[in-house]
Design a protein around this nucleic acid. Structure first.
Lengths: 233, 233
DNA sequence: CGCTGTGTTGAATGCCGTCAACGTCGGTGG
DNA sequence: CCACCGACGTTGACGGCATTCAACACAGCG
């Protein structure tokens, strides 16, 4: 018997519809752990020993260059796999994972991967689809950076964040974890100064409301026009 | 018996060491085809019906935006899998693949994938590793575009091309397929004008020699310094 | 021999990064 | 409670890099 309950994962997109035994197979080698805000789940270039599933919270995946520049590769949302180096045939983690808020995480030792993959093919399929989807997203980001101006890229990034991690409030849709201007800059390949200027001007136009580590989109439609560069100035 | 000979793939990195029967399993559902220069192997957004292995030639993978901008996602080299949408759980091709020179390609119908994957796990593993490696490369490209200037990005791109597809000549190492300034611009997110200017100035400094659809690196070491922004001006 | 694709180069514009200074919030410790 | 301090945010001024616009050169091909 696994020490964890099926209900932890039974409702997740990748696991819905699996028989109870399969869920138990999956959970038996798993452990759960809590990561307080700003703690590292794993570290760039460290030997990959485990892979993970985010049960609750938000995680920031960050790559640091030899020169010390940081780039945010993505945010992980609840229910997503991450740190699946083993599924890519890698032995080290290509980035660091930092808890953006207090998080609860399931982890499996890499040694459990081959057995899991053969006994529960749906699990492997989920992992590979995750990687495939991330390749797509990353390609899209390259295209954005190649073809769009900073304002459009920032608008797209903010829209992506609210659509993936938005929480409805009385004023609009708010990104439901703390995020700084610097964070947004590291997602879009620009500087915190430019992000600050643009958020300020959007606020003047009534498109967003933003405060300390907080962004709320009040007019998603217009922001979408900004992202597509279709807004009359 | 497959209609194709084992020797076609026996020497490739992903297949070396596989027993002959496995190679036959792999080759039985495969077909080979020739694609003349500038022809499309598959088309962006088309329904994915097959996946491919490049036996000889060079293939350019291109994504086009709704606005009509083109970005070169990557070049495929001999021996690499491509168009493996099926392994990512996709039903359409996310980009187009165009023969940069006359090419010979193996193709499998997607319907052969599940059987192949279970009967020859090493084949599946190769595909997944390919996807993983491309995710890494694409991430690196995002980081380059976020943190480096155009000159460094172009230098990196040229170095990558010569290292992956270089042919030694009396003058240096030449990219062994036709490539235009426009192509390099679409790889690096810049304009053909900027690429032309930089190649000209590098030629003045004796780092490269370039002509019509041709680039030869004569001083890889200095070009590497340029890529790292370590060159004294 | 003209046409199309490719490449080169000059000049001007402008986006956005850089530098700088200041403001504000929230936590911490005396 | 209040003073302090570090993290976060804002805004102005300036300048440089790369795009944009333009014109021309050259090669290959029908």
């Amino acid at each position: 018997m696994p020490t964890l309950d099926r209900s932890l994962i039974a409702g997740l997109p990748g696991f819905a519809g699996l028989p109870g035994e399969a869920l138990d197979h999956i959970l038996t080698p798993a452990r759960s752990a809590r990561f307080p805000k700003d703690s590292e789940v794993f570290s760039q270039d460290a030997e990959a020993t485990s892979f993970f599933l985010l049960l609750s919270g938000h995680i920031r995946v960050v790559r640091t260059t030899p020169a010390g520049d940081q780039v945010i590769a993505r945010y992980i949302n609840e229910g997503e796999l991450f740190g699946i180096a083993v599924a890519m045939g890698r032995t080290t983690y290509p980035a660091s994972a930092v808890a953006a808020v207090d998080c609860v995480v399931l982890s499996w030792p890499n040694s459990a991967w081959p057995d899991l993959q053969s006994r529960v093919p749906a699990f492997g399929a989920t992992a590979y689809q995750t990687i495939g989807a991330r390749l797509q997203e990353t390609q899209s980001r390259v295209i954005e950076m190649s073809t769009q101006q900073v304002e459009q890229r920032i608008a797209s990034a903010v829209l992506r964040l609210v659509s993936q991690s938005g929480r409805k409030t009385s004023e609009g849709i708010e990104i439901d974890f703390p995020i700084t201007r610097q964070d947004i800059a590291e997602m879009t390949g620009t500087t915190l100064h430019t992000v600050s200027r643009l958020l300020s001007s959007w606020e003047d136009e009534g498109i967003v409301k933003s405060g300390r580590q907080k962004v709320t989109v009040t007019d998603p439609h217009t922001l979408m026009l900004v992202a597509e560069n279709r807004r009359r100035k």
